[in-house]
Design a protein around this nucleic acid. Sequence first.
DNA 1: AATAAATGTGGATATTACTCACATATTATT
DNA 2: AATAATATGTGAGTAATATCCACATTTATT
Lengths: 207, 207
Amino acid sequence: MAPTETNKKTKYHHGDLRQALIASATNMVESEGVNGLSLRKLAEKVNVSRTAAYHHFKDKHDLLCAIAAQGFAQWQAMAEVISKDDSLSSREKFKQFFLKYIQFAINNAAIYELMFGHQLWQSEGDNSALKDVSYPCFQYQVEMTRLWQQQGIFPSSENPTRLAQVTWATMHGLAKLYIDGIYTQSSTIEDMCDTAINLLVINKPAN
Amino acid sequence: MAPTETNKKTKYHHGDLRQALIASATNMVESEGVNGLSLRKLAEKVNVSRTAAYHHFKDKHDLLCAIAAQGFAQWQAMAEVISKDDSLSSREKFKQFFLKYIQFAINNAAIYELMFGHQLWQSEGDNSALKDVSYPCFQYQVEMTRLWQQQGIFPSSENPTRLAQVTWATMHGLAKLYIDGIYTQSSTIEDMCDTAINLLVINKPAN
DNA sequence: AATAAATGTGGATATTACTCACATATTATT
DNA sequence: AATAATATGTGAGTAATATCCACATTTATT
């Protein structure tokens, strides 16, 4: 997309307002939190009228869903990198998976809140866009869990979906614990992860 | 309805407006979610002026903190009942603790969201009232964890605080998973809890 | 070129949290 | 008991917000 527009100073149409809105909104959410995002301030920042966004997103909820969906895509990409890294043993892959998840959540705290918060999931609005991207994301983790069971890292007696849910729950709980500062101080996050992994994983038999 | 208002003398002062506000606000949060609570509608419901609440709570945030604090007190009471029940073995106590926690979260979903959500914890406002009640609550769990370690339910090699953090994280993650309907269907909550407990606890040695 | 569709604009509305000046009830002090 | 201080109520008003509406301009389709 490089039409002859460079010489035009003020063009009526933006060019790619939708992407500009998502990008700028993501920034605002990251820097000021979810509640720091208002459509008016957003419009100001993108130099566009207050109501322009409504031609690209049904409402604020819809815009937030788009931001969260982007977050899921990012995490999915990271997970695939770990999964396909042949230099790692299965055991190391799980550990990396766990640690990178926490790291991702911490580095994108406000986006993470959006991805997994009640604001979008519990809303009555249409969050199918969110589910469409998050569900395969979780299914991917189920598949990895299945492999980990075969490698003896998790008990093969358990249902892989349940196992994936429990490991995700633990990761999610730790991430929230850290991000919101509940029951914890920031210095202990590594210890917490170590303890969690020790508990969840079947210990390698001493040989 | 339709009370004879002619002979009824409406008092200028309410009597115990603070408690009435907390109670009614709790109801509104439970039935319509956190975002369903507006101070105006609340004032209407309690039959009081829009601004009356500001004599009892600094702002909306302050009122929400009071609701959440009440939630912590309730859970603390439930935890103590389990802990002091002599008819339960230590192992059964942990299981009960885990299951009752999830049950509490599900039965009070909106309040639970308030208790552990970013809205109050991440805010810049004063949430010391919240921390004052939630911190002892967690310390209690640490003490119980210490005992469970002595009973061989958790590895004694781990730091009890870390263990309590990890078990709380798992419980919290499962509760959120269920409540928000992320990655899960409601029918599998019991299986998920079973799997979680199996993973976290040291298996009783076959005898 | 004509027309339709997409994408922009400013004006308007309803809801919201919150502030302010003031009214009335309760209590503490004399 | 009288009075002062304090607690607790009221209504008017403000600023911010999400969203709707009628209309303007640009782009795509025929």
